[in-house]
Design a protein around this nucleic acid. Structure first.
Lengths: 188, 188
DNA sequence: GCAATTACGATACTGCGGTAGCGTAAATAA
DNA sequence: TTATTTACGCTACCGCAGTATCGTAATTGC
């Protein structure tokens, strides 16, 4: 079928494993393409035949590394939102700040990378959107504002703290964000 | 007083001017330290005697470039907030995205740079905080949430859109953020 | 005048991301 | 078998940020 010499299918895995090791030890900056190729026992050009840039390699790596945590909505939108936002906050807090920042920078530089990075981050965004829309339908949230804006006000502050102000992302903070959007809990 | 050969005071200005030119044309990435030094007619080592890294040079440059737009509060917190958030949105929208992202990345990598970048961005943050606190005192905003959180929900989504989702920063969006936090305007 | 001190220019260097060119290996199509 | 096509390793190279070294210029203290 395909004409030429086939790709060695084992190489990609070895490269990703080597890149993961490098990323663990030195972060995005400390990850050296030469060392990744060396560690995988492969020429640098072979790596670049699979990913066009260091950023694409790292995005691919993170995409394969991250385990899908499926979110099962309950019938309590407030609890769902709190859980979701807290999870996102915990995920961001456990990631090195510079990695998130470097991914954002790489995304801003290269539109192709931007697509991949956005795909990486959009999943959680969409989950929050779904719950917010549900909460509005249930009347838990005032619906004078579009759901997309509320989502930005729930998730945006997390990235803002991480990338801009440098303040910590605590679970309390995540809860406070939800309370601010939904209003204080009504006493039953 | 000072013992050795004095610094040539004209050099710093020439370097900053050269860096500004470079930054205009090629952005953060396109700014080459070698070219900046060349353009200023100065050795590269002389540049590094003034700023420890490219990031510090760029932060210093932006700090000197930005004109202070003084904010004079009125007695209408809603109008003040709308004006402030819209101004921040316009400022971010008119800045190349990659520059903001690269500054955030540089800030995440180097704590010294982080301080400078945060100082650069914190001014507007504090202005918003002041107006939000005032609005809470005036009873325009519910005070079940700390002002700092509301500020994050007003400003954070701007950076979030710029750096993460890539969605546009329109004046309408800024207004919607304020409406979402303050609630719909009461008919008089 | 003279020593000490600091700034400057110049050169060379390192490791980096990324590219180009070439010889060779492995597959298919004829 | 042979031509074609693609993958791979290798080497060399580019421009980049940043560092080290050294000779020299300019200033202060003595």
């Amino acid at each position: 079928m395909t004409r030429g010499r086939p790709r060695d299918t084992a190489i990609e895995g070895r490269l990703l494993a080597a890149a993961a090791e490098e990323l663990r030890h030195g972060g995005y900056d400390g990850l050296s393409i030469d060392r990744v190729a060396d560690r995988a026992g492969v020429a640098k050009t072979t790596l670049y035949r699979r990913w066009a840039s260091k950023a694409e390699l790292v995005v691919a790596l993170i995409t394969t590394m991250r385990e899908e945590v499926p979110f099962e909505p309950s019938d309590d939108p407030r609890a769902d939102l709190t859980r979701l936002v807290s999870t996102i906050a915990a995920g961001l807090a456990s990631t090195p700040t510079s990695l998130v920042a470097d991914l954002a920078a790489a995304a801003a530089r290269d539109p192709r990378v931007g697509e991949s990075v956005r795909a990486l981050w959009s999943e959680r965004h969409r989950a929050v959107t779904a719950v917010v829309a549900k909460a509005q339908q249930a009347g838990v949230v005032l619906d004078h504002v579009a759901p997309a804006v509320l989502v930005d006000q729930l998730v945006g502050p997390l990235y803002y703290r991480l990338l801009v102000t440098g303040e910590p992302l605590t679970p309390e903070y995540a809860r406070t964000l939800v309370v601010s959007v939904l209003g204080p809990e009504e006493s039953p």
